[in-house]
Design a protein around this nucleic acid. Structure first.
Lengths: 234, 234
DNA sequence: CGGCTTCTTGAAGATATTCAAACCCAGTGG
DNA sequence: CCACTGGGTTTGAATATCTTCAAGAAGCCG
């Protein structure tokens, strides 16, 4: 596991109020007065693909809002195996458990170059006490995470490998009908299968013409084909 | 799917303040003044084993605190399959999503005769606005659920069937070293395997003397044996 | 061009599913 | 009382699916 270094881009408080993705993020509902309660710097950090944002078990000093890129949350098993339990897209919050004063429960690793806002736990604490607007957002975040966790279980850990892969592709599909996949190892850790089997399964969907490789790891998806693989009726 | 009837036991506000499991539940931290904000009845309801507490998609009018018994949260797939995503033990909260005004995301079914407190969504709403003490508990509940969801994925959906079953048994084990299992169908839906394979796997652990059947579906667990099946080194 | 990693493919073996039949047990009704 | 029934469970055998181990191909970087 390569340990990543996080490079700071802005060294002092990012301007949340002027944030470009403001309506997506944890602080979406805050107003002028609320922002004045922030007395610690919120920095913007970047992690390169493959680098670690935080490690499982380490003390949760910060929450992160994903601005761009993609993160995986990984959990390890007693027998050495690993499993990716969630993906975090722009707008999502990483390390929510820090707001409860608990250590991180996953290792967060960037799958693509990723930019994040790093929010000190105390800032959330303070705002959480003072404004109900943050609560609502926090609850919503917990809820979203839980929903994704449940869907991940039912969708990506149930049924045969081609079904699981089809469901993952449907989840990942952009409005333009394309999806970007990952290393076969990560794919395996998401679907609960081996690296080799992940490779074979991708090849099989290609053969069935459910997906077409536009460029390395970018695929054009045949939605109806994927849907019927998903429903296991073809 | 048998649709269950819920019988009301007390018809008016249960006495939360004198609750026997007060320190376990959602209202653990509330004080005298907080309780005075409750203006809708909190009833105690019971569901028999196999009966439905609420259905997926139905509008979430109530949150429930499990007082005794055991619930399963079930999710259904496009292809007809089903998956049990969580178990709720006494002290746990069912239907948290109702506090966000959303419909239920699972079907909740009793595995054993189960007693619950039924809390109208508005009560939580009101308290949530007025007292930070409830927030902390709500957050904690979300967190606990998410933690269980993640563990369920890594523990119960990863590895070979005997490993998964061993992990489930470890989770279910009482302080006295015994665990109570479920129908083979439910077992399959928890471990992501077929009913028949669940049956075979239980038989295998018996043969390996990792578990011993005391009475139908009650087993004495050999912890060290289970641990090493879990770690896949025996 | 090596040297490295990741991806792919093959073949043998392990593991899980499917379909079918037998079994057990509690309840029902003759 | 006992046969009959229906649900859940167990078992068997054939098949499908996945894993493992090993080797070859493709891509990347110094």
């Amino acid at each position: 596991m390569k340990q990543g270094r996080i490079e700071e881009v802005w060294s002092s408080g990012a301007k949340c109020e002027a944030c470009g993705i403001r309506d997506l993020v944890l602080f979406a509902d805050l107003d002028q007065a609320d922002f004045s309660l922030i007395h610690l710097p919120i920095d913007e950090v970047e992690v390169a693909a493959g680098e670690v944002l935080y490690n499982c078990q380490s003390s949760g000093a910060y929450l992160y809002t994903v601005r761009s890129g993609l993160l995986k949350l990984v959990q390890y098993l007693p027998d050495g195996g690993q499993r990716i339990v969630r993906l975090l897209k722009p707008g999502a919050t990483a390390g929510l458990e820090a707001s409860l004063g608990q250590p991180y429960e996953h290792t967060a690793i960037a799958l693509q170059p990723t930019a994040l806002c790093r929010i000190p736990r105390q800032v959330v604490d303070r705002l959480s006490r003072e404004t109900p607007r943050l609560h609502a957002q926090l609850m919503q975040r917990w809820h979203d995470s839980l929903r994704q966790a449940d869907d991940w279980l039912t969708g990506l850990s149930t049924g045969k490998a081609p079904q699981r892969l089809a469901r993952l592709l449907i989840q990942l599909m952009e409005p333009d009908g394309t999806a970007t996949l990952f290393s076969r190892e990560d794919l395996g850790a998401m679907l609960g299968i081996t690296t080799e089997h992940a490779s074979r399964t991708v090849a099989e969907l290609k053969r069935q013409e459910a997906i077409f490789e536009l460029s390395p790891n970018r695929y054009l998806c045949a939605i109806d084909q994927l849907d019927c693989i998903d429903a296991a009726d073809c």
